[in-house]
Design a binder for these strands. Structure first.
Lengths: 190, 190
DNA sequence: CGAGGCCTTGACCGCGGTCAATGCCCGTGG
DNA sequence: CCACGGGCATTGACCGCGGTCAAGGCCTCG
């Protein structure tokens, strides 16, 4: 199980320092997903979160008849629905982009550990905080920036993303159409 | 001090059930702000959060030479900078919209209580969770909705907002210009 | 009564959405 | 080995939403 803890490299430093992962790490199980697998579905309850050891996933919801992508997750990221954690149906669908290798976290156990184990409670705090930082940065990007600035932001901050996802997904993530993204890219190249 | 706890009505039910507020409540102090007071400033450290008992505030940052408003807070809302909580300079400025009456929370104490007191740790979890829900809803609003839909959302979900803030602020909050908001409103009225 | 803050309205135009056609890459099957 | 089809990206034509700049109206306060 120590091996699992070592794999959770992203939260390792802060969490192990307070022995935060030890309790939940004992319950972790390794699982594999294939490209296209969709463990978490909008409107449904799902009792697990996942840490991606190898692979990638995306989260999206349906607006009118189109998918709107809200995030991507890759190695060392946590994949979960906050609603599921609170015993409610998910608001988004999570689908794997690649064949993936994950650690499975039981949400009921995590929730109940956090009631009595302060280290687990801190662990959740850390994950929440990181998610808030991500969301606030994303809101800054979307609230008052033109399409070109949104794309340049990805080029600068997440260039690796371009090699792992279709541009159609990136466009949705940036809140623009695939055609507009295509034109923005053409503008930059020449 | 029990009086303070009773005033924190928004988090009272869940928090008091686990005695979450008791430790930090002993350190709360009542403070008053005047319209225009700006306790939290972009780039600066500020050691307090506030619960608004009466009044209102807004948070914003500077983009180019314009203010971009990220949230409003009124009665029973918590006003704080997550960066300040983590001992870093604030990313946003918080300014009071009205003469306000607040409870002041010492962030250092809150942080240190949360290290040993699991109830305080849960309290922070609750506040973080609520903030995540707020941010995710806001991202849905901004990522793939036209101006008119954004305004209609406020009309439906937060109609009281219209009576307390200038339309210029609302426009910024919705990610559009004041002129566009004005035209949208004209379209709806007739 | 004048000044300033806030909202509205007008003219103009560029960004970005929609619809449709075309190009490119690659896997599959004849 | 080549031909076809499907998935994805690009490009074009068109146009409406929303940004910018500027002017004008309304209300409040000094």
């Amino acid at each position: 199980m120590q091996q699992h803890i070592q794999m959770i490299s992203k939260y390792l430093d802060s969490a192990l320092a307070e022995k935060g992962w030890e309790k939940i790490a004992e319950t972790l199980q390794e699982v594999h997903f294939k490209e296209g697998d969709t463990p978490i579905r909008e409107g449904y309850y799902h009792n697990y979160a996942y840490i991606i050891l190898q692979g990638g996933a995306r989260s999206y919801y349906w607006k009118d008849d189109k998918e709107v992508i809200t995030w991507f997750a890759f190695e060392n990221d946590v994949v979960a629905s906050l609603q599921n954690y609170n015993n409610k149906p998910a608001l988004e669908t999570v689908s794997f982009l690649e064949n993936s290798h994950c650690l499975k976290i039981d949400l009921h156990k995590l929730h109940s550990f956090s009631q009595t184990d302060i280290a687990t409670c801190h662990l959740i705090n850390t994950i929440f905080e990181e998610h808030i930082t991500f969301l606030e940065e994303r809101l800054r990007l979307l609230q008052h920036n033109a399409g070109i600035e949104r794309y340049l932001y990805i080029l600068e901050k997440e260039p690796a993303l371009l090699n792992r996802i279709p541009l159609t997904y990136l466009a949705s993530y940036l809140g623009i159409t695939r055609e507009t993204l295509s034109r923005l890219r053409a503008r930059i190249t020449f």
